[in-house]
């Protein structure tokens, strides 16, 4: 028995050490990005993919985009704590909180996405257990094992899947596509997108998410940072896709009351006609293109400075 245990122990340690080595080579996706950032950011934005609209190279401030497609306010709060605890934010840093229309309807782990909460996978690689909603040891072990596998394959140039997708003849595919105008494209995009986003907005009662946002803002203020709430510009068709009455009562009025209550500036560009009617500034109906990002970032940084100096 002892001999067997000694062998098992040896094999177990060797396997664990090799796996640990490969797991440590690189974190996946967003976790990899987070693990490489350096201290002293003077401006940082969180939020969903709508936060991609910020482009800090137009600013003299040292800024970082910490937004992530479909992110929830619960994880915005955890990311904020991560930044704060690791001293990655400069004194008096500006914390930009882009608030998407649907954000208050999401649950913490985006269970609407299925795939056993695949949304939270990246967070297991850099957050503490108590920062992860419904933390599971099983999931953590599986994620690290998959990451070791991914890194092993990358290191030895083995494709992640044994079979590569066939190369598509792009020219043929492009020729088959009917040329449509940017306006039509954005309208079509808005039609599909708003349907989904309006559904998301009503998945859950919003109270819990307001609570997470409040915790973030209060802690940021207490820590000497400058939180700012922002609604980014959307193309007009995107705004029209939502029920206007719902938007007014459930989003704008609540958000304004909330901003006033906490004494935090709220900048709303959602219906700003400099953007909403200018299809040339959009990549799709709810995301700006590079030109749009540049224009928006300059504008928003100016407005933030004005609002913060007023406060």
């Amino acid at each position: 028995m002892k001999k067997f245990f000694a062998e098992i122990l040896f094999v177990g340690i060797a396997v664990a050490a090799i796996s640990y080595y490969f797991d440590g080579i690189k974190n996946p996706g967003f976790a990899n990005f987070i693990s490489r950032i350096k201290p002293d950011y003077e401006i940082a934005n969180f939020g969903t993919s709508h936060g991609y609209d910020f482009n800090y190279h137009v600013s003299p401030l040292r800024g970082i985009n910490l937004n992530r497609g479909g992110n929830t306010l619960f994880y915005d709060l955890q990311n904020y704590y991560y930044m704060k605890e690791n001293k990655l934010l400069a004194d008096n840093a500006i914390i930009v909180l882009p608030i998407s229309y649907f954000i208050f309807g999401l649950d913490e782990n985006r269970s609407d996405r299925g795939l056993e909460n695949a949304f939270v996978d990246d967070y297991y690689f850099y957050m503490n257990r108590d920062q992860i909603h419904e933390y599971s040891v099983k999931k953590e072990v599986a994620l690290h094992s998959h990451n070791a596998q991914r890194n092993f394959k990358s290191k030895y140039k083995i494709p992640q899947n044994f079979k590569r997708a066939p190369t598509k003849n792009k020219n043929v595919a492009q020729n088959k596509k009917r040329k449509i105008s940017q306006k039509e494209k954005l309208a079509k995009h808005a039609e599909d997108r708003t349907k989904r986003h309006f559904e998301l907005a009503r998945l859950m009662p919003p109270e819990k998410n307001f609570m997470y946002l409040e915790e973030l803002i209060l802690d940021a203020k207490e820590s000497g940072f400058n939180p700012v709430l922002v609604t980014v510009p959307y193309y007009e068709a995107y705004n029209q896709g939502f029920d206007l009455d719902w938007l007014k009562k459930q989003y704008f009025e609540r958000l304004n009351r909330f901003g006033n209550k906490l004494g935090v500036p709220y900048l709303d560009y959602s219906h700003d006609e400099r953007f909403t009617k200018n299809e040339g500034l959009f990549k799709d109906s709810d995301h700006l293109n590079e030109a749009g990002k540049e224009m928006f970032s300059e504008l928003v940084l100016e407005d933030i400075n004005v609002r913060l100096s007023e406060n």
């Binding site: 062998e7 094999v11 060797a14 396997v15 490969f22 998959h146 070791a148 596998q149 092993f152 394959k153």
Partner: peptide, 17 residues
């Protein structure tokens, strides 16, 4: 033991996710 470790590592690195 080395053979066992090799098979286990091959299992971990090539298992279908």
């Amino acid at each position: 033991l080395l053979s066992l470790i090799l098979v286990i590592m091959a299992t971990l690195f090539f298992m279908s996710t």
